[in-house]
Design a binder for these strands. Structure first.
Lengths: 197, 197
DNA sequence: CGGGTATGTCAACGCTCGTTGGCATACGCT
DNA sequence: AGCGTATGCCAACGAGCGTTGACATACCCG
């Protein structure tokens, strides 16, 4: 009966669609939205540029599909409250290095309004609730600033780390070891989430 | 004889040159490097696009001229050591809001390699020495991390703040008041500069 | 006052981009 | 086996871009 919009059946072109998406993420991550061209993405995926249009409609829609992202945040209330900072920083480093989608989103979000909106949504919908749950479970100290504001502060430090380390490649930050980064940045995140000023 | 390359004399076209530079900074700050077009900049400056080329040679050179930036960092060793964080965060907020050059540089640096290099230079040449002087003057606690690494950590938080507040406009960070920002972020910067992990 | 130079306009170039439509081929179902 | 359809390639379009050169006007100095 195939009622839904896509037949939901395995299509023969699924491999091509996946190749396009993979190449798109790479290019968007490396070059940003405007410098990543449909033509270059198509060449990486070893198909014709017109295929990209057929399967994704437009460059903007291709980006929307390539920028789907789940932070996969762990449940921070199920661990010792004094470790949430370290766990979170470590988790973000893993997430950033294991998937270039986030770098693509960051690079594109700086110049493309739609990508910026997507970025706002990710942090509001995924980091916001985690911060709220943590604040609700915190014994004390959690006064003076809303959970949303705390999530924003965390975002400022985490995105600043990603920006300087993976995008601008500021030498000291780009070369610092994972352990050093966690050692120094975890207390900041910890304080933003559940501490006081 | 006019030996030197530029005659160094006040030229009649100085107003035009300045208008171009001002329009360029606005466009680069608002749109990033690739979306800011020479044509749009020329229109803002109310002159012909070819004038931009005549006076600045190319788009890349125009950007180089527009992205000249001095952080104007104060002498942090001449104040109570426990206030350097607050002073620095306040100074950066002022510097960011009073001059869009830094936003232009940040937006462009994410996609343009030359702009990224410029950004690296600014933080290495201007923030690095300040951090080094501060660390040298600090009585204790300043062990375990080089001054350059400390400057990098500061840059990660400061640039993250600028990114989320002025570029991505993440709601919680963009709407937070100046006082709240200083209250919460100053301790972070303070610790990165002269504290321990 | 007259000539050389600086300032500005106009039109066009070559290029790349996203996007489109037509056409060949290969697949899958009955 | 044969037909409908999905998949893929090719060529081209219109637009926008940075950039260039020829030409007109205004200024300044002798």
């Amino acid at each position: 009966m195939t009622v839904s919009d896509p037949p939901a059946s395995p299509r023969r072109s699924d491999r091509t669609r996946a190749a396009i998406l993979r190449a798109a993420r790479e290019r968007f991550a490396a070059d940003g939205y405007e410098r990543a061209t449909i033509r270059a993405i198509a060449q990486d995926a070893k198909i014709d540029p017109s295929m990209v249009m057929r399967y994704y409609g437009s460059k903007q829609q291709l980006f929307a599909a390539a920028a789907e992202f789940d932070l996969r945040l762990p449940d921070l209330t199920a661990m010792p409250p004094d470790q949430v900072g370290a766990v979170l920083v470590g988790h973000f480093l893993d997430r950033w290095e294991g998937d270039e989608t986030m770098t693509a989103l960051l690079r594109a979000g700086v110049t493309n309004p739609d990508a910026a909106e997507r970025m706002r949504g990710i942090f509001a919908d995924q980091l916001g609730p985690v911060a709220a749950a943590l604040l609700a479970a915190a014994p004390t100290g959690g006064t003076g600033l809303s959970a949303a504001a705390r999530a924003g502060l965390v975002a400022s430090q985490i995105l600043g780390l990603a920006l300087t380390r993976y995008v601008l490649r500021l030498p000291p930050v780009a070369t610092l070891g994972r352990e050093d980064l966690i050692t120094w940045i975890a207390p900041t995140v910890q304080r933003y989430l559940v501490g006081g000023p």
